[in-house]
Design a protein around this nucleic acid. Structure first.
Length: 614
DNA sequence: GCCGTTTTCGGCCCGACTGTTTTCAGTCG
């Protein structure tokens, strides 16, 4: 039987939710399935592992009912109840759910009406029906809905499907461009990104931007002049455009007096907001993007002094801080707003003091253009260029972690020789560089250098660097670069073998090996890895490379609870990539890391002690 | 169907927008 991944389970549960919606089931049952899907999708370990331990019911939002069906699914590959429900739904409805503006009810009606049979052809068949004017005559539909379906399909074909996400740095770059453009207007009093982008999630759907202004019409008119492919929507509160890149940007404007409430509302996450509103409701407070309505009879003292909008019967908040304060909470950093208990921590006043980019003192995973005959990519720039940049960044140290020399092309003694020559070369380069900077600059402070190596973990767990070559490095990062699809048991043993192979193994590089939107991470028993890392005092890397962001934040969160420490590195293959450090810091923050959890926040002397185990 | 520092029953976050309608259903974030 094929093992079901969390993503596949989540998709299955969402299909169940959609099916129930089409069948007119109780709406709370639908919500329950959606919540279970969300919960499983955000799980840090596989649901299958919960099942192995007989603990499916421990998964939040999975109760006795769904646990029973999932159990059957894991045992036999089928859940009769799921099959029975979905048997009543034509398969052709499901692709339609990915088209903007089409939900379960509409999809179901359209498929029933026209008898679309195949999920492969349904989108083009629907397009043809709309072209022929066959939709406008359906009850509940009209000319306008027909147009909307046509333009939605066009969007869908351009890639604007509901699940098409982009990597964080790309979204960040696009958003910065648009915000720079918007800020040219002096009427824009404040501007921020919203949603998953503000929470620094690894992949982003739409780009949402908030602006505070007393002249909304002016700001919106300016926004829709930004170069775009298509104006999707324009109204009094904002507008949406589709860029030439196929990416959607939404602008929302708000009066400065209620900007804080709007910012809070649209930053999400959905689950954070749901939890927050439930909590507020217990105090008789109803939250919305406009502010807070008081439902109780006795005056609530926390709302005193807030601006009151009589028309909306709502108290307004210009900042998020004042909004949270009115519910009795301190401000919660956006990265924490994922319903992982942050509201309880906020209540107890024990939110983590999150690590900042400025806490980072060095970057330990950098590839130079020194050719040591590796089977992997070299970097693009020489050591001295990285050193210059490290100095500008104010780093106390950097580590050069080139890939090990190819083990298939060289003998052991050749590899040892290559590593020895490399060490000599770097030491010489570094020494002349330090002399140069001491002469030119007023300060004698400059980054220290660690000569390291990124060593392949071979399929059997052996390190791709012979014992004698370790004499020529300060420490190594070990990483998986091949055989990603080994079974969980084999992979776990493989990595543990590598981690304990040599005392100079200090960092486990991009541990899951995932490539965002391209390749899933490896299957591995994280608890066993955590145990070994803790015993051997090895750091897990948080790789800041835009395509990796690896470890994923959810696993960082779990590892941190076990007392594991992390090293945030850029894995730079060119000097410009050293600036990606901030994305790694975002991952750490989403994993609730404080400065102490990050090994490369240590100053040089302390870090050196850690790295060299002395 | 899930869930519980007052509850094992009776609740379940909130509002905007749209289109097709005279009060609402569907979709979205």
């Amino acid at each position: 039987m094929k093992t079901l991944t969390n993503i596949e389970l989540a998709q299955l549960l969402r299909k169940m939710a959609a099916s129930y919606q089409m069948l007119g089931e109780n709406r709370f049952k639908i919500i329950a399935y959606e919540r279970a899907a969300d919960s499983i999708e955000h799980l840090t370990s596989e649901a299958k592992d919960y099942w192995d331990d007989g603990k499916l019911g421990d998964i939040p939002s999975v109760g006795a009912g769904i646990a029973y069906y999932l159990d059957e699914l894991f045992r036999s590959g089928h859940a009769r109840h799921f099959d029975d429900v979905m048997k009543r739904i034509p398969e052709a409805v499901f692709p339609l759910l990915l088209i903007p503006g089409i939900g379960p009810k509409k999809a179901y009606r359209l498929v029933k009406e026209f008898g679309f049979g195949s999920s492969k052809t349904v989108v083009s068949e629907l397009e043809a029906a709309a072209r022929d004017g066959k939709i406008a005559s359906m009850e509940g539909f009209g000319d306008k809905s027909e147009d909307v379906i046509l333009s939605s399909i066009a969007l869908y074909k351009k890639g604007a499907i509901k699940e098409n996400r982009m990597e964080l740095p790309l979204a960040d770059t696009i958003a910065q461009d648009v915000m720079t453009y918007l800020m040219k207007l002096k009427e824009v009093e404040a501007i921020d990104v919203l949603g998953s982008l503000r929470r620094h999630v690894a992949t982003i759907g739409d780009i949402d931007i908030a602006a505070a202004t007393k002249k909304p019409e002016l700001v919106i008119a300016h926004f829709v002049q930004y170069p775009h492919e298509k104006l999707i929507d324009e109204g009094p509160r904002g507008a949406s455009i589709l860029l030439h890149s196929g990416r959607q940007v939404d602008l929302r404007v708000s009066d400065p007096r209620s900007y804080g409430a709007m910012l809070q509302y649209f930053t999400g996450s959905k689950n954070h907001n749901i939890k927050l509103r439930s909590y507020a409701l217990e105090q008789g407070l109803s939250l919305s993007e406009h502010g807070i309505k008081y439902m109780g009879k006795i005056q609530n003292s926390k709302l005193k002094g807030q601006n009151y909008n009589a028309k909306l019967k709502t108290y307004q908040f210009d900042t998020e801080e004042s909004f949270y304060k009115a519910i009795g909470l301190p401000w919660i950093a956006p990265e924490l707003r994922e319903d992982k208990g942050e509201i309880d921590f906020a209540l107890r006043g024990s939110l983590p003091n999150l690590v900042e980019l400025s806490d980072i003192r060095g970057d330990l995973h950098i590839h130079t253009n020194y050719d040591l005959s590796s089977s992997h990519d070299l970097g693009a720039d020489p050591l001295t260029v990285y050193l210059d940049r490290a100095m500008e960044l104010g780093y106390a140290y950097i580590g050069i972690s080139d890939h090990n020399p190819s083990v298939t092309k060289h003998s052991v003694s050749q590899i040892v020789d290559i590593m020895k020559r490399r060490k000599g070369y770097y030491e010489h380069q570094y020494s002349s560089w330090t002399q140069k900077v001491s002469k030119n600059k007023s300060t004698d402070r400059h980054p220290e250098l660690f000569i390291m190596c990124e060593v392949d973990i071979q399929p059997d767990g052996a390190l791709a660097l012979p014992e004698k070559a370790f004499d020529y490095v300060d420490a190594v990062v070990v990483s998986i670069h091949s055989s990603f699809t080994q079974s969980k048991d084999v992979m776990t043993k493989r990595v543990i073998t590598a981690l304990i192979a040599h005392p100079k193994v200090r960092i486990f590089g991009h541990p899951t090996g995932r490539l965002l939107t391209k390749r899933e991470g490896v299957e591995i028993d994280w608890n066993e890895i955590f145990t070994v890392c803790k015993d051997r005092n090895i750091a897990l890397e948080i790789n800041a490379h835009p395509q990796r962001l690896d470890l994923p934040d959810t696993i960082v969160y779990d590892a941190r609870k076990e007392g594991i420490r992390f090293c945030i590195n850029t894995d730079s293959h060119a000097v410009s990539q050293m600036d990606m450090m901030r994305y790694g810091v975002s991952v750490a923050r989403r994993g609730w890391c404080q400065k102490d959890d990050i090994i490369n926040s240590l100053e040089y002397t302390e870090f050196r002690k850690w790295l060299k185990r002395s």
